[in-house]
Nucleic acid binder design. Structure first.
Lengths: 146, 146
DNA sequence: GTAACTCATTACCCAACCTAAATACCACCC
DNA sequence: GGGTGGTATTTAGGTTGGGTAATGAGTTAC
């Protein structure tokens, strides 16, 4: 078993990580900024904010969703005016997706509300625990994208 | 804004945490030990392993799921022989749910497979990053249950 | 003993994915 | 240049894991 490439008791950590991530994910689903936006739609907007613009296929890969799902998500976002669709300059099969100014504004508002919710939750954590979490956030993000 | 009860730039951490948790959760959904078991069903078995036994209502609260959903989940688990249902000794409205030996065996196997998957993923992480994650796991779990 | 509450359940519904197949396009080779 | 294989997106249809509302059975308080 190639499990203990990293020392110690990773079994417990993995198990704990898995259940915590799933549970937190379920709860986060209910904490939407805009009721009409699904968690994945939010996530796509976040990705676009970081990457500038991308094709539907790229987005599907980054979000680990199948292409047809991304098509629908992008279509919904466009209908809400949060995303712009342009033809790809080099390849007419592809499209370029980029966020609108409206999306930026919404993301800002979103960040504020999420902060409030998580800060409220984090009141049950002491300063050390929160610091641990802050350190882990980027690692978790890296792991999720591997 | 009651966001900065803890110093620094929690906004970025929160945002990062949220998207990472959602993305990882989506990927974990596909990494099932037993194809016929949903993530929440697995989670319920885990909870039962820790707590011994519980009523459907207690389980629903712990998993942050509505009671009717837990009824269905428990029924499915029972049909698969992973869980036992007994009448509650003191209150005939309630029931006691406890895991079977079969469930314990499955959980053990599950732990092995998940380890393999996550260890594989974690090969993209260096030792320090993995250590950070190990430290964060219990905190994340605490947070998820707050 | 009845009113009010709680636990579990039943019946029905919906959202967010998926797979398979179709369409449009590019790139290579003869 | 025309066919052939491969890729990007979309369309169509299905599954699943939850949710809400309403019901039934049992308990507790008055």
């Amino acid at each position: 078993m190639p499990d203990l490439i990293h020392g110690g008791d990773s079994a417990a950590a993995v198990s704990s990580l898995r259940s915590a991530v799933m549970l937190l994910g379920r709860r986060l689903k209910h904490q939407r900024v805009d009721e009409s936006l699904s968690p994945t739609e939010m996530s796509v907007l976040g990705t676009l904010a970081r990457c500038g613009s991308a094709t539907p296929g790229e987005l599907a890969r980054k979000e680990h969703v199948q292409p047809p799902s991304m098509t629908r998500i992008v279509a919904l976002l466009e209908a809400k005016g949060l995303v712009r669709l342009e033809p790809h300059p080099d390849d007419r099969r592809q499209k370029r997706v980029s966020q609108t100014e409206q999306a930026e504004a919404m993301l800002a508002e979103s960040r504020t509300k999420r902060n409030a919710w998580l800060a409220h939750l984090a009141e049950g954590l002491d300063e050390d625990e929160w610091e641990t979490l802050r350190a882990a956030a980027p690692v978790l993000e890296k792991l999720a994208h591997l």
